[in-house]
Design a protein around this nucleic acid. Structure first.
Lengths: 194, 194
DNA sequence: CCTATATGTTTACATCATAAACATCTACGG
DNA sequence: CCGTAGATGTTTATGATGTAAACATATAGG
């Protein structure tokens, strides 16, 4: 099975040729059509063409594999947001929000996986991931340097898009672009105070 | 097991004395300490003292039982919000939002169950449940009769509290009361438009 | 009273996560 | 070169799960 030693960083190794990466890839692929609850180690192993328990040479248990997949998903999201921000110019902040919701709608399983298993440390915003860094950074532009205000703004924005994404994923709200726009750049009556 | 025929609408019936209700109750009880993924029909049956497959006399499958539990949860939430609104006087709207998040934090499993399994019909806000009715109704008070504005406002408010609840449940945000207040009645910079 | 039906049980099966023992390959030290 | 140790994969086994089918029983209505 040593796939011709393609000279590159790709597969070469002991028996399979980087089973670990293959499993993560298979998991991410499976997550495109399959509910996260229906993903099984055995299924992935089968997909990759390896015995059911080979997984345990690379991951202590199922959670560990899912976590690896989630990290990949978080990175994907971060890159999409970054690109969206750059392409949007002065609308950068709301563009990242839109990208967030779009990512959720385009990758429901992965999105859920990321935000339900990725236990980020910290008592505030999660640190160390691209998405959150951008969130805080961009929020700061609207709050004139007050870090507390930036934080509050960032949390509000995050909650808004996250809630919208979740409600749409769960079929509680229709998943159409118009509603996304309405919610994200609807300035609406937020000055109301009760 | 016919618990003394307490004269009331409670349990009396064929063999068990309303197994259906007992199973739902056991499920709700289990959901207090147990992750939703770890809830098993066999476990509930065991809890209630009945054979593993007795469940299928009352529910076609696991999803159906969970759905029954979710309906109960939704009703609970609606009542809590109603009470919160009444107790809050002029702050009724934000009080329902706070109640929403508090319910989520106090009943993580149930909250997730409600909003991940309760497939509500409709292309807009879910109709026919107390929580949503109140949401729309109270939103109308802030929008001076314009139904489109009311709807947009309601959706925004819902997304905000739902996202906040979810992020807190999933450990992405600290689950403290101060943050809830900050997000819910922080009027912050929503006039910003990019 | 007696039988149809609702309710519950037993048995059975496929699938799953995971553990333990076993096999094999690769790399590295002599 | 070789041969052994460790990394990787396989086989086999265990207990749990959801669910189907056949069976048993209690209840209700004729």
């Amino acid at each position: 099975m040593v796939t011709v030693s393609t000279s590159n960083v790709e597969q070469r190794a002991y028996h399979h040729g980087d089973l670990r990466a293959a499993l993560v890839a298979a998991g991410l692929r499976a997550l495109e059509n399959t509910d996260i609850a229906d993903i099984s180690l055995r299924g992935l192993a089968r997909e990759v063409g390896v015995s059911a328990t080979a997984v345990y040479r690379h991951f202590p248990d199922k959670r560990a594999l899912l976590e690896a997949m989630a990290q990949d998903g978080l990175a994907q999201l971060g890159q999409l947001q970054q690109r969206a921000a750059m392409d949007a110019g002065d609308q950068a902040f709301s563009a990242t929000g839109r990208a967030y919701v779009r990512f959720a709608l385009a990758n429901p399983g992965l999105f859920r996986l990321v935000f339900t298993h990725c236990q980020m440390r910290g008592d505030g915003l999660p640190e160390g991931n691209l998405a959150a860094d951008m969130l805080l950074g961009n929020a700061a532009k609207f709050t004139g340097g007050d870090p507390a205000a930036a934080r509050r703004f960032a949390v509000q924005a995050w909650a808004l898009v996250h809630g919208l994404a979740m409600l749409m994923l769960d079929g509680q709200l229709p998943a159409d672009e118009a509603l996304i726009d309405q919610v994200i750049d609807g300035r609406s009556m937020w000055q109301a105070r009760s």
